[in-house]
Design a protein around this nucleic acid. Structure first.
Length: 356
DNA sequence: CTAATTTGACCATG
DNA sequence: CATGGTCAAATTAG
């Protein structure tokens, strides 16, 4: 509509919507009870959102353009050997000296920033969804979670060893809505991807989605990638079936998508707003890449340098994205220890359209 | 060949 | 001790 929004504009809208969502959450918390932590987290999320929105605007306005080196791809081979394997490199896996764990150098796991995102994958026919978040992840484990139907997968930054980047994330498929995945991020990226924020627009993205069932039912999984489909679909499917592989959210190279610092990016955002119409298009990571994915020029340049990312030491971001208009607020039971704190919700956002 | 994934065991925590 | 998170050897993928 509207003559045509550029990709950036769409992103911009997305950021704003996201900021709005977060603001709503914040408002809700404020009106009830919330801890400083949760508030701080939300606030930070909001700020981030707007910062990104601003960046997008800046990008569009003048001729400013982010000189971003393409980093991601070439790195693996780089000789930079920090040898992060220190933590558990000894002979016996069990002998990792806790004292050496790099993660503990400065923060404990518990202290590390952590935020959750829910991504809805369209499910119409089964499956899709490259949940690209712009970073390269390497799966390092999978675990069946008590009470959960689906196993949880653990990923760590691919550059953990080479660049000592300790960011990790875990992906858990929702029980109720198999099309929803809860992704919890932990730690900030200190790798080049995190710094420059991956952006590679040239490299075709490649990633696979596999899904593993607990041995229950299903069979609907298959790599839903254009690339795969176009090339070796059958092969993959076969393999997948044989192996009953797991769902992997890994992304190996950022395609041209929006990438964000914290890792928020592809959130399904609810569309109650006026923006609904087109937000829709960018909302659903659901559609096969081929469809909604625009091979547009590199956008997104979000550099850590421009803005101050972690002003607060918030620990938990809780971002949840409502997928379909129907279900949205429900899922909000993460560790949200609301605390009482009143405030006047005089957000400048109160214009119609906001806050349904 | 290298890099990524799988997978069961190990470890930490509550 | 049960649960969740991580490691690392073995395996697969590219």
């Amino acid at each position: 509509m509207e003559g045509g929004w550029s990709w950036d504009q769409t992103s911009l809208v997305g950021e704003i919507i996201q900021g709005m969502e977060l603001t709503k959450q914040l408002r809700a918390e404020l009106s009830s009870a919330s801890t400083e932590e949760s508030r701080g987290s939300l606030i930070q999320g909001i700020l981030s959102s707007y910062e990104r929105a601003l960046l997008i605007l800046k990008r569009n306005a003048p001729m400013n353009q982010p000189p971003m080196p393409e980093v991601a791809p070439g790195l693996p081979g780089s000789p930079i050997s920090v040898n992060g394997s220190a933590s558990s490199d000894d002979s016996g896996r069990g002998l990792k000296d806790p004292q050496q764990d790099p993660r503990k150098e400065s923060k404990k796991r518990k202290t590390q920033p952590r935020w959750k995102v829910q991504v809805k994958v369209n499910s119409e026919t089964g499956f899709e969804g490259p949940h690209e978040d712009g970073y390269s992840w390497r799966k390092y484990g999978q675990k069946d979670i008590l009470g959960a139907t689906y196993p949880r997968s653990y990923y760590r930054c691919t550059f953990r060893n080479t660049q000592n980047c300790w960011a990790v994330k875990q992906v858990q498929r929702s029980d109720e809505d198999p099309s929803v995945f809860e992704i919890t991020y932990r730690g900030k990226h200190t790798c080049s991807q995190g710094n420059y924020l991956a952006q590679s627009c040239h490299s075709p993205e490649k990633q696979e989605n596999k899904e593993n069932d607990h041995g229950h039912d299903h069979h609907q999984k298959q790599p839903a990638q254009e690339s795969l489909f176009g090339n070796q679909t059958i092969e993959n499917i076969e393999k997948l079936k044989n192996k009953a592989s797991t769902f992997c959210f890994g992304s190996t190279s950022g395609g041209c998508k929006d990438i964000v610092n914290g890792g928020f990016s592809h959130l399904a955002i609810d569309t109650h707003t006026a923006l609904g119409s087109f937000s829709q298009s960018f909302i659903s990571p659901t559609t096969p890449d081929s469809n909604y994915f625009t091979p547009s020029p590199c956008q997104r340049s979000n550099i850590g340098g421009t803005h101050n990312m972690q002003p607060l030491e918030s620990d938990v971001y809780e971002i949840f994205s409502a997928n379909t208009s129907a279900t949205n607020s429900p899922i909000l039971d993460w560790d949200f220890p609301f605390d009482s704190e009143q405030i006047n919700s005089n957000f400048p956002f109160n214009s119609p359209g906001f806050f349904y």
